[in-house]
Design a protein around this nucleic acid. Structure first.
Lengths: 118, 118
DNA sequence: ACTTTTAATCGTAACATTGCGATGAAACAA
DNA sequence: TTGTTTCATCGCAATGTTACGATTAAAAGT
């Protein structure tokens, strides 16, 4: 009987549904205060932001760049090159799609009846 | 000029607001498919669940126990000892409070006007 | 008392994440 | 061409997270 070798430290995504993995991926992006702060700032400014994210958040430039990369890979933000600087803003279409997925998860308690215990 | 020593690998929570840190903490809990699956199962069953979480999710008992501990510490679930087994269920009051916080973050796009770029 | 059942905890292995200095690349200015 | 600015990437250090075997603890059954 062949047994799948478990790789320690790595989440076993294979045993979960696509939806479960997708929810987890998005939640992970929100799982760091710097990324929360970046998104809040982009919404507040409400236009492309070129550069001043490093000044706004108190982290070094490579660190901010890394956080932006993760948000961009998930499709939550867009980045447009503008001369020497790069302008970032929220990807509103994807944000709405993301919200729908997360809200379905968060609103599970609406469908559930009053529990019979606890 | 004394410089705060940065501890590598550790999130610099001090430079963010309480709300930002709180959102990140909750999101972190949802940031693993096993915990998403556990919560979904608890909602689906809609009563206390004694034991069968290990059978339901395909992970070893100590691993499930660890995930349950994190969800419990965050207040999202409750655990009642019942003989030799322990029964878990959603902490509905805290779930609603948590939803309010996350929804404020997710619905930022409603307040923002049409962006002037991108 | 002894065994069984159930779940927490301990210890450890391995990968992931965070942070930043140093460096590189690309556009612009002089 | 030679700086300058702006940001991405590399490389590393340090802590965090995930997973599970082994063990422990507590209640219940025999």
């Amino acid at each position: 009987m062949k047994q799948l070798k478990t790789v320690m430290g790595l989440a076993k995504t294979e045993i979960f549904t696509d939806t479960q993995n997708e929810i987890a991926s998005i939640a992970k992006a929100f799982g760091h205060p710097a990324r929360v702060a970046i998104l809040q700032h982009l919404f507040k400014i409400n236009t492309c932001v070129c550069g001043d994210l490093v000044n706004e958040i108190g982290l070094a430039q490579p660190t901010i760049s890394q956080h932006l990369k993760e948000l961009k890979m998930l499709g939550l933000i867009k980045g447009n090159v503008e001369g020497t600087s790069v302008c970032y803003c929220i990807h509103k279409d994807n944000w709405i799609k993301m919200k729908a997925l997360i809200n379905t998860f968060l609103n599970q308690d609406n469908e559930a009846n009053a529990s019979s215990c606890c």
